[in-house]
Nucleic acid binder design. Structure first.
Lengths: 136, 136
DNA sequence: CTATATGCAAATCATTTGCAACCAG
DNA sequence: CTGGTTGCAAATGATTTGCATATAG
């Protein structure tokens, strides 16, 4: 894949910094943190600014070149509901709702019982459903 | 549910602060942030310390009384892999791997086609699979 | 009593911002 | 040229920490 091509398609200027951030993300295949990307970059381009890396990453996410992975945190949120359940995330706001469905759980459990994931032992799974709420 | 009972079971001392945090989380049904919990609490107990709320929440999570909801952020992570896919989260480390499976996607798509979620329009879904990696 | 828990203020740490200088198109 | 980009240093904001004091059991 050609970085310059992608930038051009997204109507972004081709700058050395952007190419370098691209290179870092594509070389680090481990869902790197911004921190890790910065370390990687600093090794070969000590002059690039931390703020610039963040800015470039923001633009990339905005343009759909790169995706943020949902992980444990954020502004941390707590859920008192301890039963196995899934979540509905509103695409337009911070609203989150619980979603529980026995049938879905059975479906998934059966699926993973028959189709194991090589080298991975499943403890639990949770579906993150993104969309929009109609009411309210 | 009896808060004092739960604390006792978990071998935690029953303190007014813990009861108040409990009350906040159970009253706020919106997956509150620590911030929101603190605001709620401050209104009725202006004397409780912010640091204490964080400490209490940490203990609750540790003891399995409350759960952190996985959301967009954390120390933010970026993924260059833009195709629809799921994630394997290592329970013991920060390792995350992509997981892609056509069959699973079809299964889920079919499920949600027949079983709509009331008041919610699904745009996308992503399965967060937690477990342990055998190798490495 | 004694280990735990709390409160305070200072410290951390990722991320953001403001703004002047820079450079891609 | 000229607006989009960069770099710097300072600002922000959530969360944590150290430590002296308070308190549950």
């Amino acid at each position: 894949m050609n970085f310059e091509q992608i930038l051009k398609e997204k109507e972004l200027k081709i700058t050395p910094q952007r190419l370098v951030v691209f290179e870092a993300i594509y070389t680090l295949k481990t869902h790197p943190t911004a921190e890790e990307i910065i370390v990687f970059i600093k090794e070969r381009h000590p002059n690039i600014s931390v703020a610039t890396v963040y800015k470039v990453l923001d633009v990339f996410v905005e343009k759909g070149i790169v995706r943020k992975v949902k992980t444990e945190n954020e502004v941390m949120r707590y859920d008192a509901f301890m039963e196995h359940h899934h979540h509905l995330f509103c695409a337009d706001s911070n609203r989150i709702e619980d979603y529980q469905n026995e049938e879905l759980d059975t479906l998934l459990r059966d699926f993973f019982d028959s189709k194991k994931i090589k080298g991975f032992k499943i403890k639990d799974f949770q579906l993150h459903i993104t969309g929009t709420f109609k009411n309210k």
